[in-house]
């Protein structure tokens, strides 16, 4: 049996794996990491290499796409009929809701005209679908099939039918990376709808796809089932979109503050189509946490209730 060339070199010498070379490479890696940690050069490198990266992403998404296509193709007649019926019902419901929202929007417009409100929230959105790949399980990020050439820019909020999903953090020519609300490095300013309490919802550190509200004063009134909506402070996310629902409140380890867990309103791990919001709304400035007036069409759940006056701090 022929040995591969170089196989007979030496059995015991260090050969290619000399310690000196190890140290050189390790040092190079460490220097790279430090430079990147400081200066975020990786994004630039990824931008240049996007011609190579994007085909790989698409290729990696192929098996899942094919599986989905096959499933659709062989789905039985009855299943399709049932799905059709369900969709019809859902459409009807959505239509009804839309009508109601339309009436509310009309009323809203009149009231705003009366108040000479300066802002009009014409919501322009762009549809995008997910590329089914997983960049890193520890971070909650998704890749969508719209990029710089379709006018996507860093910082754009991403929503689905039932709430805010996250924001664009990186843009390649034809794809973009979205950081989800549940990413441990993500934070979004929210208001608790019932009480008007302003706080910040962080991504969950234990990768459970939840939101975490830490450092709530124990005296604050937070209950299981409270709805969280975006407060619009910070100017990145528009106000009044559903963000999540409190499912657990407890004292934290110090006993001085309460910590709450919330389930995201958006179908974070189930959506396959998302909407990119285009107009970044004007930040309100740190005034009162109002839930009313700004209810944008398109977000149905929470703002569908008639606005009720909030206790202003």
């Amino acid at each position: 049996m022929a040995l591969a060339p170089g196989d007979n070199a030496t059995l015991f010498s260090a050969g290619a794996a000399s310690t000196l070379r190890l140290i050189v490479y390790l040092a190079a890696a460490v220097v790279l990491m430090i430079l990147d940690h400081r200066g975020h050069y990786l994004e630039a490198v990824r931008g240049h290499a996007s011609l190579l990266i994007e085909p790989l992403y698409r290729l990696a998404a192929l098996p899942a796409d094919a599986a989905r296509a096959t499933r659709t193709a062989v789905a039985s007649q009855s299943a399709l009929a049932a799905e059709n019926r369900e969709l019809r019902e859902a459409l009807l419901l959505a239509q009804a809701r839309l009508n109601r929202a339309g009436a509310l929007a009309a009323q809203n417009e009149r009231l705003q005209d009366l108040l000479e409100a300066q802002k009009s929230l014409g919501l322009s959105v762009q549809m995008a679908s997910l590329l089914d790949i997983d960049i890193d399980p520890a971070r909650r990020r998704i890749v969508i099939n719209r990029g710089a050439q379709q006018g996507v820019s860093v910082g754009q909020p991403v929503i689905d039918a039932s709430g805010i999903m996250g924001q664009v953090v990186e843009v390649l020519p034809n794809t973009a990376v979205v950081m989800l609300l549940t990413d441990p490095n993500h934070a979004i300013p929210v208001t608790i709808e019932r009480t008007g309490l302003r706080t910040i919802a962080y991504g969950d550190k234990d990768a459970r796809d939840l939101l975490e509200l830490s450092n709530i004063p124990t005296s604050a009134d937070v209950q299981v089932g409270d709805k969280l909506i975006s407060s619009g402070l910070g100017g990145r996310f528009p106000a009044g979109f559903p963000v999540g629902e409190i499912r657990d409140v407890r004292n934290d380890d110090t006993g001085m503050f309460a910590t709450a867990l919330a389930t995201p309103a958006a179908a974070i791990s189930r959506s396959s189509e998302v909407l990119l919001l285009h107009d970044l709304p004007q930040p309100y400035g740190p005034a009162q946490p109002q839930v009313d007036a700004s209810a944008p069409p398109g977000a149905d759940a929470a703002p569908a209730e008639p606005a009720q006056p909030e206790p202003t701090p």
Binding site: Y25, L26, M33, D36, A49, D136
Partner: peptide, 16 residues
């Protein structure tokens, strides 16, 4: 580059 994390992390791991 593919994973879009810290540049050099995988490099360090695989070199070791």
């Amino acid at each position: 580059v593919l994973a879009g994390q810290l540049l050099g992390e995988h490099a360090l791991r695989l070199t070791v």
